[in-house]
Design a binder for these strands. Sequence first.
DNA 1: ACCCGTGTTCGCTG
DNA 2: TCAGCGAACACGGG
Length: 276
Amino acid sequence: MPELPEVEIAARNLRRWASGRRLADVEAEPSARRIFRPLAPRAFAEALRGSRIREVRRRGKHLLVTLEAGRAPLGLLSHLGMTGKWLRRGVGEPPPSHSRARLHLDDGVVLHYRDPRLFGRLRVVPGARFDDLPELAALGPDPLEDGIDAKRLAAMLGSTRRPVKVALLDQRILPGVGNIHASEALFIAGIDPRRGARSLSPAEVRRLGRAVLRSIRRTLRKEYGPEVAYVEEPGAENPFRVYAREGERCPRCRAGRLRRVVQAQRSTFFCPRCQG
DNA sequence: ACCCGTGTTCGCTG
DNA sequence: TCAGCGAACACGGG
């Protein structure tokens, strides 16, 4: 379940696996209609078949794949939702469970889009005109690619009445930040997640911006590999400082116990002693 | 059986 | 008019 680091890793993987490759065949599961909307699964597969992968980019949690169909550019927009993942399978390797789409490359490799919960999206973008898509236009600058402008962040946080943790989930502010890194960044910055976004001082906003980047980069370093290890998978260690650690000792002050509260129907984890 | 979930969208409300 | 809120989506795992 991906936030910015997992999507960044997916982008790097797709680049490595598929740049310059032709899609010899494309399959889209008929039962997974909602992933391919507004196209029918069959129309989705046909739109991509035979095209060649030229570029893979990331913007927030979106993957932007540029292909070439004959002479014409063609776009593929991929959002991983809660449980989406791109997986590579070599010739003869068995498919993963819940494979919803398959890109058969001209070297025999198959790229599977696996998504048990079906919250992800795969959309064909005619002419690769990503700039015309309202959902991308609404996103703020990408924290990793463009950096974080503290002035802009302060303006965005200053114009909402929501708690700062809830505001951080708004993809118009810092796209790519999700429920984990919102909690992690607020912990690193020492800011109480329940405070109103507009109550932060300029110094706190700067600290928060830096903390978001630190949290994202740290996860990126930890998780970079051919298959991302997700925290909820059996056997995986929880790599986070506070996320999903309710009741544990605070890793900073060693005295407080980490708490869990629910905000906007999502869990927030924090140390009541360190985050004032 | 029941609860929980790294995300987004839609419709209602004040 | 619009920010903010809660439900809905769908399925697996504890």
